[in-house]
Design a protein around this nucleic acid. Structure first.
Lengths: 219, 219
DNA sequence: ACCTGAACACCGTTCAAGT
DNA sequence: ACCTGAACACCGTTCAAGT
């Protein structure tokens, strides 16, 4: 399920069966992949430097040549997860009609929810903030800021097109995000059964929540 | 700031200065208090059985006479936090006009947000689900269910009074909760600076989000 | 330049022994 | 019945030594 990172490029020896080289060659990437896998299988807290090292076939100290601490590994993991997230959001947005910002906004919310529901552990790592310091996560902050800017522009376009009631844009933006973030976390944190939502209807309920919000701000 | 739990009732000796007794007397409660403090000072992950034992002045193994595992301690912590949460919500609800369910609903949302913002670590322990199993947390589930039921009844009353547009109640209920939960977590998880919300205006922004949602469902 | 392997301080948990 | 203190397996992290 994860990308194959087995090819440890050893330049000098062209033999078919080669001994495990002393230098790994791509350890950093392999550690991040292993950590993503550990999170997906268990949860964010199941990521451990030692276990990632074990899965990469290196000694416990080896990762510290590439990451100064567990937090630094978590940051790299979060950056990779955020990158995948942004990619999927962008892809989903293409499917919305170019001339209808309101539908684009809706599509954004739906794509956000879907990715969160299907990648709960990775979503949690990105969003919980406990797992790394946001100061040092340059790429992540950029990806994140891009998403926020994009969402704002789409909502502005909807307003400019006269699709909205007279609402404060910033308030609407924050409220909309709070809604999808909250719903995603309710699902991930296991709240929904208490609200009478079975697991096979979570996506539908999420869409209904989005639509109720939209109905409230649309003209 | 925490309730004084110093009185280790020793029945036999009425002397003023008494030696530290072998039996603690109230260890369970003291451990929970210590854990709540640890969470408040650092974060949920700063709760450790050993540190709680240290602060209670007992050996590392002692807590396991009262809690089968760290998870069991976390469950007790969560139950205490949820109890405090419910108490404050109930108190806030009294201040809302008895004949205006919509304002009661609003008040509920505001009280929810305020408690979350002022007790972020405890709120996180209650809501994240990662810290304990909800099956074994009987009292917490009861407190939680009570809150959900109450919220539902208030919204029903608002509808019965003709205060709402024709919306699906369950959808409105879930959407409303997703909104306040999401906003609370955005604040706790450190998202709000990215959305241009300074720390001294968080409560106000939260209130605005609630009001925008209400404006969308009110008649 | 990158990895090994032993070491250290820490944690959760267990258990025989003490009171 | 409840607590001590040593023990064990585990983790993050460091560092001299190897390649």
């Amino acid at each position: 399920m994860s990308r194959s990172a087995k090819t440890t490029r050893v330049k000098s020896r062209p033999s078919a069966v080669q001994a495990k080289p002393y230098h790994h060659g791509d350890l950093r990437r392999v550690l991040v992949e292993a950590a993503l896998r550990l999170a997906a299988d268990g949860g964010p807290d199941d990521i451990s430097v030692r276990e990632a090292a074990r899965r990469a076939g290196v000694s416990p100290g080896a990762p510290f040549r590439h990451f100064t601490s567990r937090d630094a590994l978590m940051t790299a993991v979060a950056e990779e997860a955020q990158r995948r997230f942004n990619t999927e959001i962008a892809a989903a947005l293409v499917e919305a009609p170019a001339d209808d910002p309101l539908l684009q906004f809706r599509q954004l919310g739906r794509a956000y929810l879907r990715w969160a529901l299907r990648n709960p552990a990775h979503f949690e790592i990105i969003s919980t903030g406990r797992y790394f310091d946001h100061e040092g996560a340059k790429a992540l902050s950029a990806d994140n800021g891009e998403l926020i800017t994009m969402t704002g522009r789409i909502l502005e376009a909807a307003q400019a097109k006269g699709q909205l009631r007279p609402v404060d844009l910033k308030t609407a933006l924050i409220t909309g995000r709070a809604l999808v973030y909250g719903f995603a976390r309710m699902a991930i944190d296991g709240h929904l059964p208490r609200w009478g939502v079975a697991s096979d209807e979570i996506e539908r309920r999420g869409d209904q929540a989005i639509d109720l919000f939209l109905a409230g701000i649309v003209r």
